[in-house]
Each structure stands twice: as C-alpha cells, then as structure tokens.
C-alpha cells in the first residue's frame, strides 16, 4: 500500500497540469480548448500606467505565433503574466482551459513545469556544465539521474550540441548558449514554449539559425509564442502574428510573409482585422 501511495505521489508530481486542484477532474474537452486564452486582461503598474488594457487573445495547440510590437507595448508583461511572475489586475488567463491567474504560490511551480521559457539574455548558469544547465529542468521534477542523463543527451543532439554536455556553459558562443537555453526549455516537452526576444543578442545569421531551430521544434507538435520586434525574423516565417501596442493586441493573420513595415500602423493601413482594442 505504502509503495503504491508513493508511486502515486511521484506520478502526481510529474504529471503535466498537476498544478490544478488535487480533486479536479480533467474534462474530456480540455484537449480541444486553446492552449492559451486571455480574457479581458488588465495589468497596471501604478494607478494610471496600464501595461495591458483589456487584452483578449487565443492561441491554439500546435500554433507558432509571433508576438511583436514596439518597446513598452506590453510584450514582456504579457509573457510574465503567463509565467505568473506577475498577477493580473482583472480578467482571466486560461492555460489549457484552466484559470492560472488565481493560482496559489504553491501551485505556480507546477504551472512553470508546463512552460518552456527562453530569454534574450539566455539566463544560463555560466559556471555549470551544458548538461547541468539542461538537467535542472528535469531535476526539479524529481526524475531519476539515469533518465535525466538520457533525456539531456537526446535534447542536446536535437539542438546541435551533441557531445558537448561536459563543457562549461560560460565558454560557449552566444548562439550556442542560446541553444543551451532552448534545450533547457524543451527537455520537459512543455505544453507551451515562450521565447522572449530570443534572437535579440545574436547576429543576424545566428538569429536565423535559432528561429529555424524553434520552427523545427514547432514541427514536432510544440506550441511556440515567439516575442520579437525584429521584422526580419517575422518576414522569414509564415506564421500568425500578434501585434501589441499600448497594451492592446492586433491580430495579423497567417500568410503575411511580405509584411515589411514596422508597428501597428501598417496593420491598420492595410485594413487588417483588429481582434481587440
């Protein structure tokens, strides 16, 4: 009995979506719901300074979405709301159909285990080895050392760092460090990958490599939300584009591969559909 209970506890810890209440039943239609929904989300910094003003959007499972907009438009705030580094002031954020804006502090780690997060500044630990940097995502989930070694090896091969697990991460080039960060983000096979300006610190050629890597990951079925203000990146990919300005989102549909001008004004000039605003 004790063994069975322990096994059950361990399984519960590792299970995706374990951040929901223990007694909550997953509905049969949960898999059909969008992976991410913002419903009339407001976020203020100070009394008058609104970062997000009634934001509404949906991202379906398996989508690759660019999130763009000028500096201060609210891109990072939006991502930090998803990771629950920040809380909403009003509205709801649904992740796989569940409201994450009301999660308790104890449940937030379980949410984050279902997200893969990649930053512009990589946020890797320079004095750790490449493998240690990647393994940390699995260690927090209490996987066995043997499984961790195996998964880390697989994912390093996938991001083009095969056989380099023992090297110190701080000695790698910028592009390679970003690959380590991507490996750390995808090693748990998260439900949603959030990339916050992941090519911002890289030269154009490396940036294209990294975008290509994200596209390859997306082709395996992952949902990717890629925040960037680099129009060169956006033009290269034939993906859905969400444009943020002054805390509101404008939706530019898939297929706009020749979108070359900057900012939301172009979207308006071209008469594209405004989803919220």
């Amino acid at each position: 009995m004790a063994i069975s209970m322990n096994r059950e506890r361990r399984t519960r810890t590792r299970r995706p979506f374990a951040f929901f209440r223990a007694d909550a039943q997953r509905g049969a239609r949960d898999h059909e719901r969008p992976i991410l929904e913002f419903e009339d989300v407001y976020k203020f910094f100070g009394e008058e300074q609104a970062a997000l003003r009634g934001l509404n959007l949906k991202i379906e499972r398996g989508e690759f979405v660019f999130l763009t907009g000028p500096s201060g438009a609210g891109k990072s705030t939006m991502l930090r709301l998803i990771t629950r580094e920040l809380g909403v002031d009003s509205g709801r954020i649904l992740f796989a159909g569940k409201d994450i804006s009301r999660l308790t502090d104890r449940s937030i780690p379980y949410l984050r285990r279902n997200l893969g997060i990649v930053f512009q500044d990589f946020r890797i630990i320079p004095h750790w080895s490449v493998a240690e940097n990647v393994a940390i995502s699995l260690e927090v989930m209490d996987y066995s050392p043997r499984l961790i070694r195996s998964r880390v090896s697989e994912v390093l091969e996938r991001v083009g760092l095969e056989g380099r697990g023992g090297e110190r991460a701080g000695r790698l080039s910028g592009g390679e460090q970003q690959r380590v960060a991507i490996a750390r983000a995808i090693v748990t096979e998260p439900a949603l990958i959030l990339a916050d300006e992941p090519t911002g610190n890289l030269d154009p050629a490396l940036a294209v490599d990294i975008l290509t890597l994200f596209e390859e990951i997306h082709e395996t079925g992952a949902t990717v939300l890629f925040a960037t203000h680099d129009h060169g990146m956006i033009e290269r990919g034939n993906h859905r584009i969400l444009s943020l300005e002054k805390g509101r989102v404008y939706d530019v549909r898939k297929g706009l591969s020749s979108w070359s001008a900057s900012g939301v004004h172009t979207v308006r000039e071209q008469g594209l559909r405004v989803v919220a605003g």
């Binding site: 780690p109 946020r123 940390i136 927090v140 748990t188």
Partner: peptide, 16 residues
C-alpha cells in the same frame, strides 16, 4: 541569485 532565478523559472518548489 541567477541560479535561484533559473530554478524558479523551470518550476522548482521552494523546498528544492
């Protein structure tokens, strides 16, 4: 602090 920040972002519980 960087290590701790990374651990929190990948879903580490406070006890971890």
């Amino acid at each position: 602090s960087r290590e701790i920040e990374v651990m929190k972002l990948v879903g580490a519980q406070p006890s971890f």
